[in-house]
Design a protein around this nucleic acid. Structure first.
Lengths: 194, 194
DNA sequence: CGTCTATTTGAATGTACTCAAAAGCGGTGG
DNA sequence: CCACCGCTTTTGAGTACATTCAAATAGACG
């Protein structure tokens, strides 16, 4: 039960819950443990869950027809992850979601989420707010991708999310920022030489 | 009043409204007409409104420190537009939102939106759903930007949104897709020669 | 300690950019 | 209704930023 306290805290940043509501919410959740390199979501399968990261780190990525992979999201403690397109439309995924470290996740099932919103309309509000914030965040990332050089994007990300940079393999970071591993290596090398 | 029927229809794709709810909703709206090149949002000012486009076309863009502009969104009939980061956090904008043609817009004020959700909780649901869809859309765009060449992105956009491509100036389309006007010109030229 | 995975380095290459100038297009006024 | 002005698109040449491929090195895990 204690596993859920972090998530409860997270939810209560946006909406207030009574004890009963909290219990009902928790009754819909499930904790899973997965090991490094294990997949939560795979192409062709439908993403049934939205996952809240209790511990560990994950990434969602796409493999294009040339075989290159492109990271669309990272998630560490207190973040959510899934193939969002697959989850909200309940259609086959196009992404892989993989554990970068052994991880403990709280899963919220799609149907449970619908039930939750029907039974406790406040959760409509909760999901609205977190989605709005994610959207605003993604717009900023899109703008960064349109207007900044590779090096600038790296510097910005390093400043904002040092704890992610420190934890994830370099090639995943490069594929998130939109350039090759080799190029990130050169960027870092140039910095240390100064 | 008839001006609002398109928007009502839009809303009713996601939630059902009673006559009273509809009236209350409409009472919070305001129609404005703006001329080509006029701004709805400007940097430094707070985006007070979310705008639904009744007629005309708009774009939201960012001007970087080198003076280049980057289009983050277009909006034609039946789409919403604003500086979303500014709107949801009610903080100074970083974007320009401009009319590409004379346009008629329905404005929804930030405070009115909050009121609306308090008084008719169904609207929580409405904004949740449209934001989720926008987010899913933006993720796809981000992936396209990470994994496709300039030409591929153009071809894909042309297929999906021919009516936007046909209406907006080429330099705005290039700045949306993430390359220079000159390059888009070359892409198009190459196509017609085949 | 050995194997597998991740990072670094070098060299050649490519995709897309920049700058400048010309051409095309559209709206406005005489 | 035509001419002009401003804005947008096109074209050319030179260039930059970042990629690719291959090989070497370093690091992590059993």
């Amino acid at each position: 039960m204690d596993d859920f306290s972090a998530l409860i805290k997270y939810v209560e940043r946006y909406i207030q819950l009574t004890k009963e509501e909290e219990d009902y919410f928790v009754s819909l959740l499930r904790v899973t443990r997965i090991r490094k390199r294990q997949f939560i979501v795979q192409p062709e399968f439908i993403a049934r869950y939205r996952c809240y990261v209790l511990s560990g780190a994950c990434r969602a990525y796409y493999i294009d027809n040339k075989g290159q992979d492109h990271t669309i999201a990272f998630a560490i403690e207190d973040w959510w992850i899934t193939d969002y397109n697959s989850y909200i439309y309940q259609q086959p995924a196009t992404l892989f979601v993989e554990a970068l470290e052994d991880a403990t996740l709280i899963q919220l099932d799609y149907n449970a989420e619908q039930l939750l919103m029907e039974n406790i309309p406040k959760f409509e509000r909760f999901f609205r707010i977190i989605t709005q914030r994610s959207f605003a965040f993604l717009q900023k990332r899109m703008l960064a991708s349109l207007s900044m050089t590779a090096e600038e994007r790296y510097e910005e990300y390093l400043l904002k999310y040092p704890s992610v940079v420190a934890r994830v393999p370099q090639y995943t970071l490069a594929s998130y920022l939109g350039f090759s591993t080799e190029f990130l290596s050169r960027i870092r090398n140039k910095k240390t030489k100064r």
